[in-house]
Design a protein around this nucleic acid. Structure first.
Length: 426
RNA sequence: GGAGAAGUACCCAAGUCGGUCGAAGGGGACGGUUUGCUAAACCGUUAGUAGGGGCAACUCUAGCCGGGGUUCGAAUCCCCGCUUCUCCGCCA
């Protein structure tokens, strides 16, 4: 959600920035509604002041025995007029609100305009593995090693679900342990949130109403519940922990990480090349999250990217970091860096972490502020999130990177304390 | 799932028959005075917030869980939700 004052004071400036990620934009109606709203509000409030004044008078007049019949009927009329004003006001405000909430975040100044094609690789680490034998893809490997059961996963949940079996589950759990351990070391607070959230959570995160169809909703009895859904990422939960709260400045920054599976419909996004566990309806992810003061959020983003990178480095996987163009960032985010790991069989890089600065976009939607110690003023916090990391592309990457001609796989050293093995043989 | 109770400012809490109640009284916090010492007594301040109007001092409006309603007027009455607590039932 953007600040209407920003648009009111500098419509052209905001427009220029937003056009980096939008095709067209017109503020005329919004500004008109804004003027209309303020006029109507002034009118209605004047009437309310009058009503308050007279209502206070009535008991006194009654005690004195004055005739107040005409006064009462006048006030009845005033009341009706107020109601009338407020009804129009409500519809104008609804229009303003729905326009504002549909606007994406303003891209940071250093973010390039346009879509995916303008994403910029800012650095790479490691090298693509070279094989002296015909390498297998992760589906073949995971099947021959008995790590993942795709067929029975589909039997249980449908297409897009799989089962981690035996050592596959051990590997998955080892990855998660590795992440958890690193984040704890860095002083982040470990959160295990509910997986079912209410509508407001999706709204504050900026995912609703636009992407309301991309998540799984719970069917509720008539009038019961409040649009509960299963979370598509732990971010949705983490951003809402402090919804409608004012945080003391001294407590910032707040640094969290959470483990949850992520549940997504991913409707229509399946492609043959994304077989296996590259894209599914449910995947495991550890998510990092920070609430910061505005002046600290740029550095916090660097910190998050650095943390995500060091996790991939620790696994020894070749990756690159891309700064996304404005149009490729999710709507709530003003700046996003993706960490993409090399998947040999796909001959492509795939996202394993997305680190973003939401600036005050989410905190406005969720009404999350902090109180400055000196001025005692409340300001919106900045929110940042970054995967640290999503596992479903790492396991394929690990299998493919570290495979040998005989179908065995070397397990990255950082995971061995949990896997208890160095090499996995078919 | 069934029954009951409750939700008032940072916390606890009073609020009568609807009318100077935007809210008594505590505690805490902050400021001050005095006596003195790892404190005490006394005095004072302590809705915050959001949205309007005004250059400003200032002023208006809304806020007593949320949303509706009744009324000239609602913290107070009515309806619908949400949350918490207690008891019962069921259960990993």
């Amino acid at each position: 959600m953007l600040d209407i004052n920003l648009i009111r004071n500098d419509p052209e400036g905001v427009k220029t920035s937003l056009l980096k990620r939008m095709d067209s934009l017109d503020f005329t109606r919004l500004l008109e509604c804004d003027r209309l709203r303020r006029n109507l509000l002034a009118e209605s409030e004047k009437l309310k002041a009058e009503r308050n004044r007279v209502s206070a008078l009535i008991p006194r007049l009654r005690k004195e025995g004055s005739n107040i019949d005409t006064l009462l009927s006048d006030m009845k009329k005033t009341g009706d007029l107020i109601k009338e004003h407020d009804t129009t006001l409500e519809s104008i405000e609804a229009e303003i609100h729905s326009f504002l909430e549909s606007l994406p975040n303003i891209p940071a100044a250093d973010v390039l305009p346009g879509g995916k094609e303008n994403n910029k690789v800012v650095r790479e680490w490691g090298v693509k593995p070279v094989f002296t034998f015909p390498p297998k893809d992760h589906m073949t490997l995971s099947k021959s090693l008995g790590l993942i059961d795709y067929e029975r996963g589909a039997k249980l949940g449908g297409n897009g679900f799989w089962i981690y079996r035996g050592f596959g589950a051990v590997m998955e759990w080892a990855l998660l342990n590795y992440f958890v351990e690193e984040h704890l070391k860095d002083g982040y607070e470990f959160i295990l949130p509910p997986h079912i959230l209410n509508y407001q959570c999706g709204y504050a995160a900026g995912q609703f109403p636009k992407f309301v169809d991309d998540v799984f909703h719970l069917k509720q009895d008539e009038g019961k519940g409040s649009g509960q859904f299963i979370l598509p990422t732990a971010e949705t939960a983490l951003v809402n922990i402090y919804r409608d709260e004012i945080i003391e400045e001294a407590n910032l920054p707040l640094k969290f990480f959470a483990y949850t599976p992520c549940y997504r419909k991913e409707a229509g996004s399946y492609r043959a090349e994304e077989r296996g566990m590259i894209r599914g309806h449910q995947f495991n992810k550890v998510e990092m999250f920070q609430y910061t003061k505005p002046e600290d959020s740029e550095n916090a983003l660097e910190e998050l990217v650095g943390k995500a990178e060091s996790l991939v480095k620790g696994l020894g996987l070749h990756y690159r970091v891309s700064k996304l163009a404005a149009g490729d960032c999710s709507a709530s985010m003003g700046k996003t860096c993706d960490i993409e790991v090399w998947i040999p069989s796909m001959n492509d890089y795939k996202e394993v972490s997305s680190a973003s600065n939401g600036y005050e976009y989410q905190s406005r939607r969720g009404n999350i502020r902090f109180r400055r110690k000196d001025s005692k003023k409340n300001e919106y916090v900045h929110t940042l999130n970054a995967s640290g990391l999503a596992t479903s592309r790492l396991l394929p990457a690990i299998m493919e990177h570290f495979q040998h001609g005989d179908g065995s796989i070397t397990i990255p050293e950082v995971l061995r304390k949990w896997t208890g093995k160095e090499i996995l043989k078919p």
